[in-house]
Write a protein that binds this DNA or RNA. Sequence first.
DNA 1: CTGAAAGCGCTAACAG
DNA 2: CTGTTAGCGCTTTCAG
Lengths: 345, 345
Amino acid sequence: MTETPPPIQPPERKRRNASVTVNDVALLAGISAMTVSRAINTPDRLPPATLAKVQAAIAATGYVPNLLAGGLRSNKSRLVAALIPTLVSPVFNETVQALTSALRGYGYQLMLGQSGYAEPLEDELLGAIIGRRPDGIVLTGVVHSAEARRRLLASGIPVVETWDLSPEPIDMLVGFSHSAVAEAVCRHLHAHGRRRLAVIGGDDERAQRRSQAFVATALSLGLAEPWVQEVPAPTTLGSGRSALRDLRAQSTDFDAVFCSSDMLALGVLTEAQVLGIAVPTELAVMGFGDLAFARDLHPALTTVRIDGMQIGIEAARCIVDRVEGRAVPQRTIDIGFTIIERASV
Amino acid sequence: MTETPPPIQPPERKRRNASVTVNDVALLAGISAMTVSRAINTPDRLPPATLAKVQAAIAATGYVPNLLAGGLRSNKSRLVAALIPTLVSPVFNETVQALTSALRGYGYQLMLGQSGYAEPLEDELLGAIIGRRPDGIVLTGVVHSAEARRRLLASGIPVVETWDLSPEPIDMLVGFSHSAVAEAVCRHLHAHGRRRLAVIGGDDERAQRRSQAFVATALSLGLAEPWVQEVPAPTTLGSGRSALRDLRAQSTDFDAVFCSSDMLALGVLTEAQVLGIAVPTELAVMGFGDLAFARDLHPALTTVRIDGMQIGIEAARCIVDRVEGRAVPQRTIDIGFTIIERASV
DNA sequence: CTGAAAGCGCTAACAG
DNA sequence: CTGTTAGCGCTTTCAG
């Protein structure tokens, strides 16, 4: 196909109102607007001849259906909103990536919002989201604010909370237990002969929960109370390095450290190398997240794998199932976690 | 405020049609729908008394304006679409983050699409985007497909291409020159006494352009032709490690390597450490992107800083300016780049 | 299988 | 300052 681009008119002048509609297509194809609509939405139910006419007209006019209008009338926006704390930390990248792809497979689009780590889900953001009448809302973490829960519930929009567990999900939930993770990590370290533990954790709610459960497990195992170093979220390589220094300023009496993210763990690994601390012999290091780089570090990082992609896929499925009227088998899906044993312990 | 949550009704039953509208609010406030609309969109232009009545009614009914309907009528969706190759590589995170925040500041929302690195911007995705009638479209990279350019242009939607330069932008552009980056890096290495160069680059178009310009500059500087190792995009720590091994399988005759991403550079640093190659004495390493971790690596990574946040902010401003009818001063903004000298060279 | 009528919820445009 | 009317572009609904 030889393509001669048409003379390019400057896009300064908006011609939004001149946009072609179903009626233009219908006119050209010599049929009704309704049939054009059907040709687009349920092509199987039209005789091939009609379909062909419509498609020719669509091609000729360059018609692009206005999804706002369709959504208004049919009450289906084919839009799903996702709220994540931040894109700065790569923890949720996989989930967002999987969500985007999975939803697109179903014919839906993703709208992204950033909620921040600390705030209790501001009212304004919620209004902006609900106002778009998305067919579903995916939340990172569980919602604690009673006000936000009420608004979400009142909106009637399917909601999936993720990356956590809750005894009372707003609607659906795809996550895992942070305290179970921390307990498993602590037991893992203990089983590998580590007795004097430390934890470096972000100051966001879920990381704090992990730190607490880690401490509690250590105590129940009869170990000394672990040292706890808190760093601001989102966690970085730099904060991992300084956290290890800070920890050692307090005491050098620990032989294992659990980091609340792989980035933090990479920082600890880096600082250990600089300080000449042998990993894992002198110090065992564990991360959280199993980011892509964890396996390729030196030493390879023992960490907790959370299948972020799976979370995204399941969340998409939950919402689409609900929207299409299918029964959602279970309201809560615990996708669990896996401790990936590598060289750093 | 003591909050007694109302009895929670199960969200299974969708009550989307029961949603409250301007008319409900108007009725309750004893005024017209139009005034409710004005109370929401131009509150300053209403007498405080009226405004108060409306706000009371809104609070009482829990009204959330339907932005689909408003957008349909006013031809302003307050939605901006962004297309990025992938979320897997963290390179664009800052840009997306900044876009989201900046747009929200203007009262706009971001819709996210993933275009993949290779494909020439599929038709279907483009339709899904344009069909939503966003007020703007932000693209990562410049569009080469004539068909895509035409559709974008025909849509009349403001477009910002980013992360690259083009002699013929579709509309607006916020980026920098990849060949200028590579040339500067090569000269930098040369100025630091490196004579036998290598480059490890992703197989995406922009990375390839950097590799080529790097080679060309080396030749023009009278150096031997640099070794080139290509790795699949998105680039990872792991691919950086194996690339260095592969490079050394060919030859050990190089004293500097330019990596097309910081992740790749981290991989090279890691592998160098494992192989006992001293950085920077034996091997100088440069990255690209200046991700958050680059400064905290050991040795700290010399790299090219691209202000991804700035790109996001400028792109948002371009679109909002255009939508609100303000003149956009320049169609092309070259945000440039900076070589950040640290310890790895 | 196809079409006509009606209206989703909102706001532009124009009165008053 | 406020209200009325109309209609954005599509699809639901019902009737051929």
